[in-house]
């Protein structure tokens, strides 16, 4: 079947099967930032935005994004660089495999709640598993980024 949607702000028309998952479609369209870490919706590695909301692309039917806007980390390059630098400065990216999903959801968190407390950060990102970092370094990086953005707002 034919699917029309917007991928990283570019209108696309692709041929899919009825049961194609969004994750597989996106990787086939060279959005390699989107990763699969499990089959059960638990790891968060495949997080992308559909109409600006973070969703699990492993559990979203490709057919369901007809007419909608899908954004992957490939489409958020500048934000990823700015935000990611704070993770990198902690060494908290480690193996990096969970990073794209984490960055997507961390960006969503920032957009939704730029003043998030530690507990709110932990709860919002609870669906992003990381086996390397122990989360503390990621939390330090996210906290620093939010602080930096607060400063930026104050200066504007």
């Amino acid at each position: 079947m034919e699917l029309k949607f917007t991928l990283n702000e570019v209108p696309r028309v692709v041929e899919i099967s009825a049961d194609t998952l969004l994750l597989d479609l996106l990787r086939s369209m060279k959005c390699y930032s989107v990763k699969r870490g499990c089959e059960t919706g638990n790891c968060g590695l495949c997080t992308v935005f559909v109409d600006e909301r973070p969703v699990l692309s492993c559990s979203t039917l490709a057919a369901r994004v007809e007419g909608r806007s899908v954004v992957t980390l490939e489409g958020l390059r500048e934000e990823a660089e700015e935000y990611g630098a704070y993770i990198a400065d902690e060494g908290a990216e480690q193996c990096g495999f969970c990073n794209p999903g984490l960055m997507m959801n961390a960006i969503a968190l920032y957009r939704e709640n730029p003043e998030a407390t530690d507990d709110e950060i932990k709860e919002y990102l609870a669906g992003n598993l990381c086996r390397c970092s122990g989360y503390e370094g990621q939390l330090r990086g996210i906290r620093s980024y939010l602080e930096f953005k607060k400063g930026e707002v104050r200066h504007e």
Partner: peptide
Amino acid sequence: IVGVQFRNV
């Protein structure tokens, strides 16, 4: 329930 991206789905 898992996480925000799960609950969005």
